[in-house]
Design a protein around this nucleic acid. Structure first.
Lengths: 203, 203
DNA sequence: ATGTTTGTTAACCATATGGTTAAACTTAAT
DNA sequence: ATTAAGTTTAACCATATGGTTAACAAACAT
């Protein structure tokens, strides 16, 4: 790839860019602000990443490749649907509490530029739903769970786990809850969400 | 309010601004683009709305006041929790299918500027969760539904209904589904989501 | 008819912004 | 020590952008 000797500056840039882009989005981010945060000259951004677009894409890919493995876990291991839901819910919420800007960043930028996902497909280990689909179908046929399509169940799992982090300002306002209480609510969701889902699909 | 004689131009501007802002967000939107879409001179934007910020706020308030009544319906009428869930899910999804940019726009801009919600509280009929809370508590005490906090149930309802529209590019990619099939999935959710929720909370 | 308020336009302005350049500095191989 | 490659900086550039101005047109009141 690059022939740079040390990658210290490059990493400083990428970290600074990550913070700024995730907080302000592509359009709201300023190259000067990223440079300031990285404590380097603005020209260095272009020296290492050529353009704002390319710097952004590097950040986006890094962010996406943090999320993808989480999904692959639920989709492609061999545990039962019930165990997957429990594990995913617990792990995912724990993960997001540490990276609160991530889901919103990815969703927002993907909405701004949907064809972006095509590039990810080739670069990152991209989650697919095929195995999960078979498994759900099996358990429906077994009678272990109620009749539901794997797609709808998958959407429900994602929705219940991700949305509360994406829409936190809105939900905080509606429920009239302060930041601290909201954190408690999110902690409780580590088990509450999987209980909810399992209740919904168990016969 | 304003002393303008006819509000034709003003409306043209607001509609154009709505489209552009909802598609590109505050930072991505350009005043010139809005003027072009409204077929008027850029100076008119400032004549009627003084600044980009104020034009944006007018658009945001209008958007928010489209969503708020939907929520007030579920929170403040007298039907049972089960009926509320059914009605809300059906009505809300029908509504969003017609305004696909709305939820993402509101969530995104609220994340960018969370103190914005304080201004809305005074201006718009702002939904509160109080009545819903009592109702859920009642039904839990009655034994009609399983033990769940009104906040968690409320978050779940919002998540399941809104998230699929906010994250559609992501979900489409993961489930490997085209636009047309996605629409079908969303149609199915008008009943599938309420069934799912009711299953989850019914004893 | 005349003056006044409101609406509209083209031209303009100051500044912000992504990006470039050319020179200087650092490092390490020869 | 010299050279060459990679790294860093300050100054610069072209353009985009939100916003303003001044002149003009239309509508309306007197």
């Amino acid at each position: 790839m690059t022939k740079h000797k040390d990658n210290q500056t490059e990493n400083q840039i990428l970290n600074a860019a990550q913070h700024i882009f995730q907080e302000k989005g592509m359009d709201g981010a300023r190259m000067q602000e990223i440079a300031d945060k990285a404590n380097i000259n603005k020209a260095m951004l272009h020296y290492y990443y050529r353009s704002k677009q390319q710097l952004f894409e590097a950040v986006f890919k890094k962010a996406f490749s943090l999320l993808a493995p989480q999904l692959n876990a639920i989709l492609n291991d061999d545990s039962s649907v019930e165990d997957k839901i429990k594990n995913f819910t617990h792990n995912y919420i724990s993960f997001i509490v540490k990276h609160p800007y991530l889901p919103n960043f990815i969703i927002q930028e993907l909405n701004r530029n949907p064809q972006f996902i095509a590039q990810l497909r080739t670069n990152v280990a991209f989650p697919t739903i095929n195995k999960f689909k078979k498994q759900v179908k099996n358990e429906v046929d077994n009678g272990t769970i109620v009749s539901i399509s794997a797609e709808q169940l998958f959407i429900n799992i994602l929705s219940l786990n991700i949305f509360p982090f994406v829409a936190s300002p809105l939900i905080k306002a509606f429920t009239n809850v302060d930041d601290k209480t909201y954190k408690t609510l999110m902690e409780a969701r580590k088990t509450a969400v999987s209980d909810f889902i399992i209740n919904a699909i168990k016969k």
